[in-house]
């Protein structure tokens, strides 16, 4: 079943230096329960595309639908949780308070808020940190809390914009593993923007390779890796082959210029 569908999507920003084609003729279908990574160099439109899905950016041409609605309707229906590059937790709220934020806004009852906060904290392995303030947590823990915040209201779609970009390799590996487990458990549809080829290959069922000027899709790779993925799958020939294809796609995008 298709959850997100984009047809010949265009987005042109008008700037002082003339128009910038952030997205040009983007066509993509994302099915329910897929884990889709967007990878490409800076300026390829991967974040812009994610923001279009979220209704935070308005396309200037083409069609895009989320759960059969326009992205803006989907946003108003609270169809997705969004994780930003920085954790962006409110320093004046505890971890629990931060996760409660969307629940308060969406009008959940107090009892339900407490129950969901406890549940999502456990999901991201932060049980016991509810009463701590963000400054008392490490960067990796803060990002996990921000994922919990996006999961708290249990939307079917999770959009993540380079959520682990600022973290070190070891923490990132650990979080990738946890994210896969979480995805398997919740069966959400995930859109994931990244810079890292190994991260994209390790996590995804579908890898969308993009290139800049104008921002467009150059390759869509369906992963042949099994759903069960231990970290050492990254040494398997299958993994290396997919990574190779991603790298070729990225290189092709560059030669085009």
């Amino acid at each position: 079943m298709t959850v997100i569908s984009a047809t010949s999507l265009d987005l042109t920003f008008q700037t002082n230096d003339g128009p910038v084609h952030a997205l040009k003729d983007v066509n993509l279908e994302i099915g329910k329960g897929e884990f889709v990574s967007f990878i490409g160099p800076s300026g390829c439109g991967k974040t812009t595309f994610l923001r279009c899905i979220a209704g935070l950016e308005a396309p200037t041409g083409g069609e895009i639908s989320v759960n059969g609605m326009t992205p803006d309707e989907a946003r108003k229906a609270r169809a997705y949780g969004y994780v930003f590059q920085a954790a962006g937790l409110y320093p004046w709220r505890t971890i629990g308070g931060n996760i409660r934020l969307p629940l308060e806004i969406m009008g959940f009852t107090k009892a339900e808020q407490a129950e969901r906060v406890a549940k999502t904290l456990e999901m991201v392995d932060l049980a016991g940190f509810e009463k701590k303030y963000p400054w008392q947590l490490s960067g990796g823990m803060q990002q996990r809390a921000s994922i919990a915040r996006a999961l708290a209201f249990d939307a079917d779609i999770l959009l993540m914009d380079e959520p682990f970009g600022a973290l070190d390799e070891i923490v990132r590996d650990h979080l990738n593993e946890q994210l896969l487990a979480l995805w398997a458990r919740t069966e959400k549809t995930i859109g994931f923007v990244t810079h890292s080829i190994p991260e994209a290959v390790y996590l995804s069922t579908k890898i969308v390779v993009m290139s800049p000027r104008p921002g467009r899709i150059t390759d869509v790779i369906d992963s042949t890796l099994p759903k069960e993925r231990p970290l050492d799958i990254r040494d398997s020939p299958e993994f290396i082959e997919i990574a190779h294809r991603v790298r070729d796609g990225l290189r092709a995008g560059h030669i085009d210029e």
Partner: peptide, 27 residues
């Protein structure tokens, strides 16, 4: 921008954005 975008992803009302984000941030 990020914090305001976050509020938009929740489809937060203007008053929610004021009381829960802008006002505490201004203290």
């Amino acid at each position: 921008h990020m914090q305001l975008d976050l509020m938009r992803t929740y489809n937060a009302s203007k008053s929610d954005t004021f009381w829960k984000l802008r006002l505490p941030a201004s203290v």
